[in-house]
Design a protein around this nucleic acid. Sequence first.
DNA 1: CGACCTTTGTTTAACCCCTGAACTTAATCC
DNA 2: GGATTAAGTTCAGGGGTTAAACAAAGGTCG
Lengths: 415, 415
Amino acid sequence: MSNKQVTTPKISSTIQRQVNRAKILRTLRTLQPVARVDLARETGLSRATVSSIVDELVLESLVEEIGVTASRGGRRPILLRVRPGREGRSAIGFELSRNNLTGIVVDLHGRVIATRRELLPAGHLEPAALVELIRQQVERLTAPQDQTSHGLVGVGLGVPGLVNPDTGFVQVAAQFGWHDVPLKEMLETSLKVPVKVMNNVKAAALGEVIYSHHEPDHSPNPRLYLSLGEGIGAALIIEGKLLSGASYTAGEFGHITVAPGGPLCTCGNAGCLEAVAGLPALVSRYLELARLEEPSRLTMAPGEFPFLTSARFLEAVSAGDSLAGRVIGEAAEQIATALAGVINFTNPELIILGGPLGQVGAALLNPLNQALRRRALPLPLSHVRLITASLGANAAGLGLGATLISQLSEVVLSR
Amino acid sequence: MSNKQVTTPKISSTIQRQVNRAKILRTLRTLQPVARVDLARETGLSRATVSSIVDELVLESLVEEIGVTASRGGRRPILLRVRPGREGRSAIGFELSRNNLTGIVVDLHGRVIATRRELLPAGHLEPAALVELIRQQVERLTAPQDQTSHGLVGVGLGVPGLVNPDTGFVQVAAQFGWHDVPLKEMLETSLKVPVKVMNNVKAAALGEVIYSHHEPDHSPNPRLYLSLGEGIGAALIIEGKLLSGASYTAGEFGHITVAPGGPLCTCGNAGCLEAVAGLPALVSRYLELARLEEPSRLTMAPGEFPFLTSARFLEAVSAGDSLAGRVIGEAAEQIATALAGVINFTNPELIILGGPLGQVGAALLNPLNQALRRRALPLPLSHVRLITASLGANAAGLGLGATLISQLSEVVLSR
DNA sequence: CGACCTTTGTTTAACCCCTGAACTTAATCC
DNA sequence: GGATTAAGTTCAGGGGTTAAACAAAGGTCG
């Protein structure tokens, strides 16, 4: 235990120290609760070094002692763990959507300890106004105890638009009429903590992928997140890092050609996946089938079907409506065509189906699996696990929060 | 200049030192010839540290002084550079093909300083026999001067088959009837130097991508190599590293569906890119067109066209044969369909067309560019440079050699 | 031409960090 | 209760980096 009455937090930042700190934090996270000896054995560091670093981590509220455990023949080991909840440190992930701003506080264990959703003010939203809104939210979300702000590791923000995740520069956010907004910079000057700004779907992807088990984790192999809704997007995560691409648009999945000569797409091309398996296309198809094959239905609820909403259609799918199921089956076939290509090409270990359409579960998973078995190469296919997203509206916030938290146990080699 | 008469090479391997060594080597490579002061300024290290590390690098034959340059107002700076040629250190990249073993010696500048191609012995090739063959080749390729073996950084081998590049385990090499051969291990015990074993096409991809400028370089953005021939393969390189995938098959590109309901492919699926744009398909298509539209040609060289070889077809393309050009144009359309998807999805900054078909140059590049302009999204497309491969048969050897060389200036953080 | 300034490169003293060994603490074993 | 064992801490020693002093080698200017 630390007996020094240290006043200065004393950030020691040689690379050596950073690497060892990260190593200890990482093994601590996976093995907790765990004693110093075990950390030494596991990391290969000396007990002296481990003691020294653990002292530091305790001073920084990252780690705490939680009492002794049974003796193993001598002095009883003191168990350590990453400090959970409000007493430890935390990160906040925000998601900006058309109407809402949702903030989620994530603790060092990667668990949600607070959530807050707020309606955006009516009318045009200025970037500066958003920054102020977030500042207030951060204050409210952290206020309960520690406005020491020593507790806050960082703040993340998911924005619907084209964002450079390295610089936090929002190039375009059409919904808000933004162009070239240095949002990260603005937030950092306002909040005085590190800020991460990225596209909201990518943030959700990070969340779903990191939390695909119960606890957050990383893997060296590619993992894929699909967002199936009005539009169809994707994100590829390799070695725990999001693939951005040369123009920060990597992950475009909706405009893969799956039906050459097929229906026109908003992108100007023909036969794009989005044009045949996007939610609007599915709704139209459902209406078409209904008219052709079961006009009785149309008469059952006159005036309703022509204006069928996406939500209604999804309800029908979930309710087991056979016609809707058929539409989903057809869509699965098209999605599989594109997805098989991506599976062959990127050879992922995990694919997560998100977005409204991803939520229908087995109704999509089953036909998709069948179609993939026909279309993808056996070897890569046999290494893929296909699941549905599980975090719902929390995905983006959790993704950003967890990313910030896990940066504590990573070393960044500049240049 | 070092005045100590050191005998032991004295490998200092704290992480701190490794990082700084790597930093210095990297900046040295990009800025050479350059003086110690400049390295200090550029890396942020003190002149003292730079001096100390440069001394080490000189002792290890990695760096040399090449005299002084003009004064900048005071003492004249001593210029340093990475030591080129046989006097410096080198790596050897081997490529194993059906009949040949080609070895290429690459110096610290990434340049070829020797090449040797040898026919494989007739009959079945045992892994152990290959190891022995390589040992002999290494000896011959390095013999001229330094059998100190202090000069050899490592040896790489590209194998046509399924290889785990991390373990160097050859899972399958059908051409040689190999299964589960620990080739890396075998080579390392025989050669006593670090060995890298990977798939030959991936190795070629590394070569073409790294040498896409005149000097070897890395880039954080995705770069793509396409191998167009009998089969169609690809490799994706991100942050200078090859994407392997969960089953080490990432990069499969030939079995993306581009013509649903189209011709059957060897993989069992229908309408795969390979089935419509692989070299055999193009040759058939050429014959078909010739019969339909220009039977006069067939009579011109009777008995030849039905047995048209791939090589002949490629010659025809290069010679400007209009019919062959049309076939290439059609193929470009199909390739573009698949490629557009990959461009949208991975958002690369560079695509290199390799393999026999890639060599035809403008005949393929032009229609491909046109088709892509129609099919890919404008933003990612505008960031892609599309070029043809330039290293020919040296690509794999150079890729392996350059990879080994550049590992000298990289730091590997275990776990 | 010689005194003085500049710049490059090296040496030195101080400090950080890690390690192994000794030491303290606190159990178990007999 | 004394010996033994294991966990944690303290301490001396060595590698690594740095700022500052110093040496080397060249300009500049009266």
